[in-house]
Design a protein around this nucleic acid. Structure first.
Lengths: 127, 127
DNA sequence: CCAGATCAACGAAGCCCTTCGTACCTCTGG
DNA sequence: CCAGAGGTACGAAGGGCTTCGTTGATCTGG
């Protein structure tokens, strides 16, 4: 049960993969450039290979153009990152993080209602 | 308005400083070892110097034993880290992060009530 | 069959973070 | 005055991340 902490660049690529679904390196590269500007093709390639070594992505090498896909659901990785931040910056208290997030100025006007509408107890939460 | 993103080690030291208040390197080093195990004194020294260069801590060098203190409130730094994570992993949506945090298994049994008790609107929040 | 396009692999460079050893300064007790 | 304790500064090593150029293999149109 390792940590599951993608780096910044790795996370950016994971976000591309989550949005795109499985894709070739070229497809991922193109989508990535659409968000980040010009990046060498081999940079995306290398990064995907590194992430594969770390178990963050899976790949299908049966065809010439390898197809990469996320190894974990977005929500699982997000949860891991949140837990990590909670441990490092909030002394393990998720409540403290939520409190801090709620006072974030970037929150949208209609968002408080959405937050409030969420279930309170974890046991009632499906996934 | 720069980013204000302490590294992992830097954040650990900041937590020591927030708990201790202003302190000499030796004091910080001792408190740090209490949590992290054996670390060289010069490691704490160097790290504090680096953080000073980054503007994360302030120091008083008028005495022989320099006294270091956090440059920012804990809540400010926490907010910056949360905002950073929101941007990198949640597409800028604080709501998504809160949702994910709420489904974190580590949350305590009585915590949902505490979360619910928090104010909904930012404008009503003092500090 | 060949030229050019497409592709994965590899290695290296550059950067930052972390850690520590060493050097040098300053103070203090005897 | 001197030895040693206690202090800061400095530089370097080691590791990880990110980026890319180069190489060599494979496919495809003509």
């Amino acid at each position: 049960m390792s940590a599951l902490r993608p780096t910044d660049a790795g996370l950016a690529l994971l976000r591309v993969l989550w949005a795109l679904g499985p894709g070739t390196i070229r497809e991922v590269h193109r989508a990535w450039e659409r968000e980040r500007g010009t990046v060498a093709y081999t940079t995306a390639l290398k990064l995907l290979q590194v992430m594969h070594d770390k178990g963050l992505v899976v790949r299908d090498t049966s065809r010439r153009s390898h197809v990469y896909a996320p190894a974990h659901d977005q929500q699982v990785v997000q949860g891991s990152l949140v837990t990590d931040l909670v441990n490092k910056a909030f002394g393990g208290s998720t409540v403290e993080l939520v409190l801090r997030a709620r006072s974030d100025r970037r929150i949208h006007a209609d968002d408080p209602a959405r937050i409030r509408a969420l279930p309170d107890r974890l046991e009632e939460d499906p996934r």
